[in-house]
Design a protein around this nucleic acid. Sequence first.
DNA 1: AAGCAGATCAACCGCCCACCC
DNA 2: GGGGTGGGCGGTTGATCTGCT
Length: 280
Amino acid sequence: MGRPPCCDKANVKRGPWTAEEDAKILAYVATHGIGNWTLVPQKAGLNRCGKSCRLRWTNYLRPDLKHDNFTPQEEDCILELHKTIGSRWSLIAKQLPGRTDNDVKNYWNTKLKKKLVNMGIDPVTHKPFAQVFAEYGKISGLPIQNATNHIQFYNNTNQNNQLFIFSNETSTPHHHLQQNYSTQIYTRETLQTLSLSEVSSTNSSFSSLQSQLPSSSSTSTSTWNDFILEDPLTSSVEEMQPVEQPTCCPAMDSFVDTILARDKQMLMDFPPFLDVYLHY
DNA sequence: AAGCAGATCAACCGCCCACCC
DNA sequence: GGGGTGGGCGGTTGATCTGCT
């Protein structure tokens, strides 16, 4: 038996707030102050959940809120605090006058996280990706060399002619790492024309990775083509069925097919455990 | 101009904890 | 001590906006 709902959800209004509703909240707070939000809808004449009223006030109507863009100073502050305390948005927001936890959280998810990923930094640990993978290798008992081998450069000639960089782990408790790696996208033309030193000078992740790769490959005259490894899944499929690859997304098709085939096999082997999670 | 995809952000959801009776 | 409640929090959703083709 769970907790009873705070209001009759079927009969309260949801969705965007109107100017009239905002005015009612403002008038109520001006008269009564904040607190006891469950009574606010009734007293203010609103057909809304009390919780929804509180959220509207704290995230939007409060007079001390800033509604302009985040400054570079605020950005630095968020990065530094996130590095120290993680996603404690309300604590971070307390250090930024006029910003709410929702503001900070949205700014992080839409801007800062991507910014870090593009810089080759894992937004969860704030460490270069290669370092995180090396440490993951240590934790899982793998030698560092094996750990870095989890980073695969898929030779993927998709429609946009982009190179996708993945972890080849298909299921890992460190799923955030996989997400981060999957967003490392470079165009093939760019990588073919850049030397390693040029790329690594602007990307600490690849700089760290480069230092852990075999010395024969990590010379400054190498290009990224030297590091494009074969997709192990594709190659294994090719061994069984030597069929000419289609031009569009060959690696991705084989990758997805392989995952689905594995899931199908697991479902047959362990139906009571997996059927809840495998409704595609 | 229309359609589409990605980005943005307000709002919601559900869990947790402190407080009160 | 235990149940009920209000408020806070982090994660997620979905409507809207924006830019590109």
